[in-house]
């Protein structure tokens, strides 16, 4: 336990404290010019300590201080009703729903494509290069068009956003699953052949179990990408609801504190999602008889 503390917790904590100290310094440096301007207009010459406090308490600071963000985050998360449009839980919930919908569809699609690629040579030779190429394309640029065009034909709400998340999340899963389904070595495949196993049996009893670790590793990447897709997908809808909308609203009205707490909310959702996928992965592996390495 003490080893774990010395090797991991201590450095991380020290570094985090350092980052927060830097943040305070940055907040002072970035807010000072505006505060000086304010004071000059008001004809005041505050002492340094007073001046420092003032830079930390501006209503619309250039860079809000950590405690301002924390306070705003706490208020909007725990003190507001969940149904209120100012509640971060409400916005995070909306983003989460399209993230999860897109992630589910994307994962299924990715697995199906991978199964096709592994079993049909023609697909492998023709589709696989395109999947790799498509990774190099800034697909997120499509987001506003998908939203606006689908809205033009009357499809709004969850589906267009989920579509973008699907798009972003199926690539990692497809690539990871192809790798995973091909991961059994020749020895095991030969063993299946000596059992006279059909392709179907080989798939269920060898390839699929072997691909599970790869699946969960790529699902971690996919769920993070899916959240990014959902957030960006909320931008062109005119800032109605969701973490992306909260960010856009903040940028319209220069509400930096709101923007930062929306960012914090998004980060927490991302961390929770990745952790959840990791946890399910570990449970599944244990359920399948895997031993911790």
């Amino acid at each position: 336990m003490t080893d774990r503390f010395r090797d991991k917790l201590l450095p991380v904590t020290v570094l985090l404290l350092g980052i927060i100290a830097l943040w305070y310094a940055g907040a002072y440096a970035m807010n000072a010019p505006f505060q000086r301007d304010l004071d000059r207009r008001a004809g005041e010459t505050p002492a340094f300590s007073e001046f420092f406090v003032r830079t930390m308490t501006q209503p619309k600071p250039t860079l809000p201080a950590p405690h301002q963000v924390a306070q705003n985050f706490f208020e909007n998360t725990f003190l507001r009703k969940v149904t209120s449009s100012r509640s971060l839980v409400y916005h995070a919930g909306i983003t989460l729903s399209s993230t999860l919908a897109g992630f589910a569809i994307g994962t299924l699609l990715g697995i199906l494509i991978a199964v096709g690629i592994v079993h049909v040579t023609a697909l492998d030779r023709s589709l696989m290069p395109w999947i790799i190429t498509s990774q190099t394309i800034p697909i997120l640029a499509l987001a506003p068009m998908i939203i606006v065009v689908l809205a033009a034909v009357g499809i709004t709400g969850l589906i267009p956003k989920a579509l973008i998340s699907t798009y972003l999340s199926f690539f990692p899963v497809a690539v990871g699953m192809v790798k995973g389904l091909r991961s059994p070595d020749v020895l095991h495949l030969d063993l299946m052949r000596t059992y006279n196993a059909s392709r179907w049996q080989t798939f269920w009893k060898l390839r699929l179990p072997a691909s599970v670790p790869f699946l969960f590793a790529s699902m971690k990447v996919a769920v993070a990408a899916s959240l990014v897709g959902a957030i960006v997908g909320e931008l062109p809808t005119g800032a109605v609801a969701g973490i992306g909308a909260k960010l856009l609203n903040g940028s319209y009205y220069s509400q930096t504190i709101d923007m930062f707490s929306a960012l914090v909310a998004g980060s927490i959702v991302a961390a929770l999602l990745v952790a959840a996928v990791g946890l399910v992965g570990r449970l599944v592996e244990r359920g399948m008889g895997g031993r911790p390495a």
Binding site: L140, A224, V232, L263, G266
Partner: peptide, 26 residues
């Protein structure tokens, strides 16, 4: 290194793109 790796790994999963409006403001 011990401190940066976990933090870097965490940040890699975050929706960093969200800082875009803040950067535009700055």
């Amino acid at each position: 290194q011990r401190g940066l790796l976990p933090i870097g790994n965490l940040v890699s999963a975050l929706p960093i793109i969200g800082i875009a409006p803040i950067m535009v403001m700055w």
